[in-house]
């Protein structure tokens, strides 16, 4: 494999070439992994960890595709903000793109935060074999309340604005992004444990212990400050997460 193929080849794919992704090839792939990103600012903060994970997996012989849902990242803005259904459909499109690129039919997925929830929701429609999750959103209503509270504090943050932004509707955005349709959709979600969930990483204590017997869980020492107002523009570089996923993938292959 060339350095460029491990580093990943950027491409647009799917209907109307609306989805952006980076494909990390493997010469004779041992497996295929789809990396499902979180949404909003959590996606921007996680980019470095996703890239490190994709490259590490590609170096170990796995074909990897990471991508952006429509209306996020470099993907096309398809009529406003993404919805739960559009994100799930995009996972299906991306999974098929990965199958076509690497020639394997069996695709596993990794997702952080809402990326994990979306991957689990798309298991059947996208024909995902298994899912690895990092800090999934367990209670959608609580997540919506937390994001609203975070945004309210952000608008009054004297370290960010010279004057409080009372001119803004407090819940119209969540840290730089409009939730749109997702607000109502997210308020109804709960973390679903299913047979496809094989590995869960909890960075936020206390560790959840409600996984199924088929699912192994690990906790990492350093909590990721997903909801910390002062950390909203910090890049997440989580080598321990990358190592944990690689170890799990290797153990499954063994």
């Amino acid at each position: 494999m060339t350095a460029a193929s491990v580093a990943g080849m950027p491409r647009y794919f799917g209907p109307h070439h609306a989805l952006f992704g980076i494909y990390h090839a493997a010469a004779t792939p041992r497996g295929a992994l789809l990396l499902c990103p979180p949404l909003g600012q959590e996606m921007i903060r996680s980019q470095r960890t996703y890239r490190l994970l994709a490259q590490a997996l590609a170096e170990r012989g796995h074909a990897v595709l990471r991508f952006d849902y429509r209306g996020t990242g470099d993907s096309a803005d398809a009529g406003g903000t993404p919805s739960w259904a559009s994100c799930c459909a995009d996972i299906g499109t991306a999974a098929q793109e990965l199958r076509n690129a690497c020639g394997l039919d069996t695709v596993s997925a990794f997702g952080a935060r809402l990326g994990a929830n979306l991957a689990m929701a798309a298991v059947d429609s996208a024909r995902l074999d298994s899912v690895m999750a990092l800090d999934p959103v367990c209670d959608g209503a609580q997540f919506v309340a937390d994001m609203d509270a975070l945004q309210s504090r952000l608008l009054l943050d004297g370290n960010r604005f010279l004057q409080p932004r009372r001119d803004m509707e407090p819940h119209a955005e969540w840290v730089g992004f409009s939730p749109g349709l997702l607000r109502d959709e997210l308020s109804r979600i709960r973390w679903q444990l299913g047979a496809a969930l094989r590995f869960q990483i909890d960075s936020t204590p206390p560790a959840r212990t409600d996984a199924t017997p088929a699912c192994s869980t690990v906790s990492v020492a350093q909590p990721i400050p997903w909801m910390n107002l002062d950390a909203q523009e910090d890049v997440i570089i989580a080598h321990d997460i990358v190592q944990a996923v690689i170890a799990h993938v290797a153990s499954r292959a063994a």
């Binding site: 996020t72 990242g73 470099d74 523009e233």
Partner: peptide, 8 residues
């Protein structure tokens, strides 16, 4: 921040 820029 990656090329999409802060908050895209």
């Amino acid at each position: 921040v990656q090329r999409i820029g802060p908050f895209r």
